[in-house]
């Protein structure tokens, strides 16, 4: 028999910067969402959008092993797993003119043919999530037209319907889509934790600056920790019973 951590698992306090996370001590796993942001081939796959812009995709791929570990942990403990994808409808009717113009200026126009299909268009190969952190059947997928996962999506409705109060963030890029989403979540009252080993940016300096910004002023947007820190701080709420045997 293997005893697994089950839906009675509790998380916290996690060793985090600048305070032991969460602010309210511990949280039941079923009140926590693991949000995996934009692990798409366009951002971290060879020949994708970011690769075509000339950035080193090893930097955006750096958080994949940690995120894979966190996904396994979240699934075992009963966290809500959510994946986001940035992209636009094939007719580009949800693409703001300035976003299209800017992408064209840097030679990777959204909607134009790319090495992995039309760039950032829903359904194209480059838009899909890379296999290392692929969603399982039944997990929540949020398609977003912007950098933030809350704007013009059903994310907030899903979180409130599932009684989620705490959010753990992985994904790319740290300073753009992950940070925008963390800021949106923070303003909505969710207690947020960003994982330094499960995120990455197109420039290392932007990654480290974005993480440090979170920690200032007593944790202005929440906390920073590692996947190992979360896993170590997860315990069965009642280790002598209640667990499900498989």
């Amino acid at each position: 028999m293997i005893r697994t951590l089950t839906r009675s698992a509790a998380i916290g306090p996690v060793v985090a910067d600048p305070y032991p996370w969460p602010y309210d001590g511990t949280v039941k796993a079923d009140r926590v969402a693991l949000i995996c942001i934009d692990w798409q081939a366009d951002f971290c796959g060879p020949g994708g959008y970011v690769d075509r812009m000339g950035y080193d995709i090893e930097l955006t791929r750096a958080g994949l092993p940690g995120t894979a570990r966190m996904l396994a942990h979240a699934r075992a403990t009963g966290m809500l797993v959510i994946h986001t994808r940035e992209g636009h409808s094939p007719d580009l009717s949800d693409l703001p003119a300035n976003k299209r113009w800017r992408s064209a200026q840097i030679g990777a126009e959204i909607g134009a043919p790319g090495p992995q299909g039309r760039i950032l268009v829903r359904g194209e190969p480059g838009w899909k999530i890379v296999p290392e952190v692929a969603p399982l059947s039944g997990e929540v997928l949020i398609d977003k037209p912007g950098k933030g996962a809350f704007y013009a999506t059903q994310l907030d409705l899903v979180l409130r319907t599932k009684h989620i109060t705490h959010i753990v963030l992985t994904g790319i890029t740290t300073d753009v889509c992950v940070h925008t989403t963390m800021r949106e979540a923070n303003d909505r009252g969710y207690e947020c934790l960003i994982l330094s080993d499960c995120t990455g940016a197109t420039e290392l300096g932007n990654h480290t600056a974005a993480l440090r910004m979170v920690t200032m002023q007593g944790g202005v947007f929440g906390c920073v920790a590692t996947s190992a820190g979360v896993i170590a701080a997860t315990v069965a709420a009642n280790p002598t019973g209640e667990g499900h045997d498989i």
């Binding site: 800017r102 992408s103 950098k147 197109t202 300096g205 932007n206 910004m213």
Partner: peptide, 15 residues
């Protein structure tokens, strides 16, 4: 953060 914040706005073609 003043410097990093301004740099982030204009990065990647003015993201």
């Amino acid at each position: 953060f003043q410097q990093a914040g301004l740099a982030m706005i204009a990065a990647q073609g003015g993201i």
